[in-house]
Nucleic acid binder design. Sequence first.
DNA 1: GTGAAAGCGCTAACAT
DNA 2: ATGTTAGCGCTTTCAC
Lengths: 344, 344
Amino acid sequence: MTNNKPVTIKDVAKHLGIAFSTVSRALHGKPYVSAELRARVEAAAAELGYVPNAGARMLHKPYGSSIGLVIPDFPNQLFATAAQIFATRFAQEGLNLMLGVSGDDPETELRQVMALREARVAGIAIATCGRSLDRTVELLRSIPTVDLADRSVNLQFPTVTLDDEQSLLLATTHLLQLGHRTIAYIGGESALGTGQRRLAGFNAAMASYGVEPLPRLIQQGPLTVDFARMATIRLMNAAVRPTGLVVANSLQTEGAVDAIASLGLRLPDDLSLLGYGDASWFKLYGKGITTIDTRTVDLANAGVDILLERMTAFEQGRSHDENPIRYTLQCNLIQRGSTGVPPS
Amino acid sequence: MTNNKPVTIKDVAKHLGIAFSTVSRALHGKPYVSAELRARVEAAAAELGYVPNAGARMLHKPYGSSIGLVIPDFPNQLFATAAQIFATRFAQEGLNLMLGVSGDDPETELRQVMALREARVAGIAIATCGRSLDRTVELLRSIPTVDLADRSVNLQFPTVTLDDEQSLLLATTHLLQLGHRTIAYIGGESALGTGQRRLAGFNAAMASYGVEPLPRLIQQGPLTVDFARMATIRLMNAAVRPTGLVVANSLQTEGAVDAIASLGLRLPDDLSLLGYGDASWFKLYGKGITTIDTRTVDLANAGVDILLERMTAFEQGRSHDENPIRYTLQCNLIQRGSTGVPPS
DNA sequence: GTGAAAGCGCTAACAT
DNA sequence: ATGTTAGCGCTTTCAC
């Protein structure tokens, strides 16, 4: 016997012969309601199958009880982890997660953010597409926001990010220490903040060993398996063959592995490969892939913390900071079998 | 100059010196509004930064403009794909995605579904935890619902699922054809519909070759990497060592691979492994892992289609079917290097 | 302690 | 074509 029309607070009141405002109070544990009545109200509500209407409740507040998460895509480990952790942790706070997928497209991204605004989310966590429209940024300014991974250059939002530069410093230095000097780099374009900073880390490491990086060995492009596959093949077929390869993105690492396999190269005998991220299979592949632990779980959790802090700040009138917080996570090197001394 | 109080339809009306209902009409492209006025309204709305309030709008409808997706977890390839595809395709329909993660826990699952009800979602797609509470099922009955993967036994919702039995029939038969007779099985418990049906497929294949499956070689347990790792080690250290192993879940496949590697076994020389799902690295691992393509993308898309259909049906008063649709996808075998003839 | 009434932002009758 | 008037379900004064 499924009711058709949803049960309202008024139905419950009528059923009990009391005022509907009393029902509201009772259900919210407000003071000045006799324990006896409260019990009866709760019983009646349960019996009739009353479900509060979040929309109606929201009319009295500046925002509702959900938060938004906007990510470019799911294959990227970080974003899947973020979705999982945001959903779980905010659920514990009684907040729902509205998920927007931008597909790395600025227009779609704007549409998602607009939708979240209409839904009156209490806060937004976003991993931008890196080329966000002005209107998007403007909208985000009116809501507690945390920027995940700081992919855009110059955004001035509270940010939780890897120490991108350090990550590649660590990775590249590892290869240099093993004796590599002809080291190739595959990463994202410098239009992305992440791409820019990671390349800087690579260059810094090379510089500190007095090695001049060869422009031909630096491949920047889309964060896709395909791009990295092609780039790797290009690199390994060129006149100057690198003995080491650092990859600065998890999906690109997959592409590099694929290419290396199809070229029949052995790790680390023919090439030392240093990956990015902690995909579950890295430890299973061959002798294991040496990689940078990007601490996706820590990053997502920090994002939740900061967003919660921002939300309280907003509530208390302290709105956007001129000098927004930047939470930067240090990466770790996970040493496995894909790196070794260069072939002699 | 970020406005503090959100701009309403009334503000726009006041600004223009017209009735607020006219603004409403103009903004929704309703008839009987002069083109000239409509233009002015739109301009004013944009200028003042008007954002519709989804909650208020919802008060006049039985439900709002979002749909819910409840999944157990993200590591499972299917669920991540579902999140991606649901978010993307429903966004095209102007619907937001509210995401709930149940962590395979019935209580949490109920809480998620309750939250979605309060948010007045227009429909729900759910991959149940397999032991859903009665109250959960009852709630779902009052909303257009599609069951993803049919993990619960006997749920009577519209369902989009793999042909689980066929998938394992295919897998097991492949090993039998290669000459294997001592075949082990690792899969989910029979409390899960998926686990039950897949095991049935395994048994059917064995039976059709006249092979009696050994109970000791059938390992059912949690859909985790860990369980499968332990189970594999147990199997390979037992007195009767299988020459072939079929795994009936993607995460468990990872565990099996891990165990096989740590035992120093070579695929397919020492053991033929038949995996489940199409994780991106299966083709990269060793000579590639022979596996069942579980068509996660097709499955998710079919889920979207069915949910949309259900939503229209509800709108038209045709509510839950006594004989709900079951959309069953056939699987394909992807033959790679981890399977071969049994060691002689 | 409880009821009555106002109003949140919006849509949709109902008036002009 | 535009204005006026009820509500939608709820929270929150303000009465009693």
